[in-house]
Computed example of a mutant assay.
Amino acid sequence: MQETLSRWLESHAGDCPFVEHPAVHTINEALIHVPAMPGLMVKNLFVRDQKGRRHFLVIVPFDKRIDLAALGRLLPASKLSMASPERLLQHLGITPGSVSLFALIHDSAQAVELVLD
């Protein structure tokens, strides 16, 4: 994904710093491995509805608790839950611990709905 992302950033945003770090699965891991940078630190979740027909990339401030039942009522979507690693790879071309807004560049089918808080 890094090469694709680097090319996209170069063509759309000019010269952007790129920071590599290991995959992180929790905010505590991110706080250890991701260097401090300006801006808002967020957490990214890839979730699906009960039937697996709708998929969402949910991005919220890192310290915010996410109530999937309440989010499901807001969207509306039935019984949201974390999507499997297989679905993550299928829709966004990435593995767990690598979920980010930039993964949407791999969603050529536009099957993933973005939810930003």
Rank of each mutant, 00 (worst) to 15 (best):
I27Y: 05
I27A: 09
H21F: 14
L9I: 11
P22T: 12
T26Q: 08
V34T: 06
G14E: 04
R7I: 02
E3Y: 07
E3L: 11
P38M: 02
G39N: 01
E10P: 00
M37Y: 02
W8N: 06
L45F: 07
F46M: 04
G14W: 03
T4W: 02
T4K: 12
E3G: 07
P38H: 07
D15G: 07
A36E: 13
N28D: 15
R7V: 05
N28Q: 14
P17S: 12
L45R: 00
A36Q: 11
P17Q: 13
M41W: 01
L5S: 03
V42P: 00
G14T: 05
W8Y: 09
T26F: 03
P22Y: 10
P35R: 06
I32Q: 14
M37D: 01
M41T: 04
N28G: 11
P38Q: 10
L45G: 01
H33N: 15
L40K: 04
G14P: 03
H33V: 06
A23H: 07
L5T: 05
P38R: 07
Q2D: 12
G14S: 01
V42W: 01
N28W: 10
A23T: 10
I32G: 04
V47N: 01
K43V: 09
D15P: 10
L31T: 07
R7Y: 02
C16I: 08
A30Y: 00
V24C: 14
G39T: 00
H12C: 10
A30H: 03
I32K: 13
L40A: 03
D15K: 14
G14M: 00
L45K: 01
A36I: 07
S6E: 14
M41E: 00
P22I: 12
C16H: 11
A23I: 08
S6D: 11
F18G: 13
P22R: 13
L45I: 06
E10M: 08
L9S: 09
F46A: 05
P38I: 03
H25E: 11
W8E: 01
T26A: 09
T26R: 04
E20T: 12
I27D: 08
N28R: 14
A36S: 11
A23L: 08
Q2H: 13
L5Q: 03
M37N: 06
S11R: 09
F18M: 15
P17A: 14
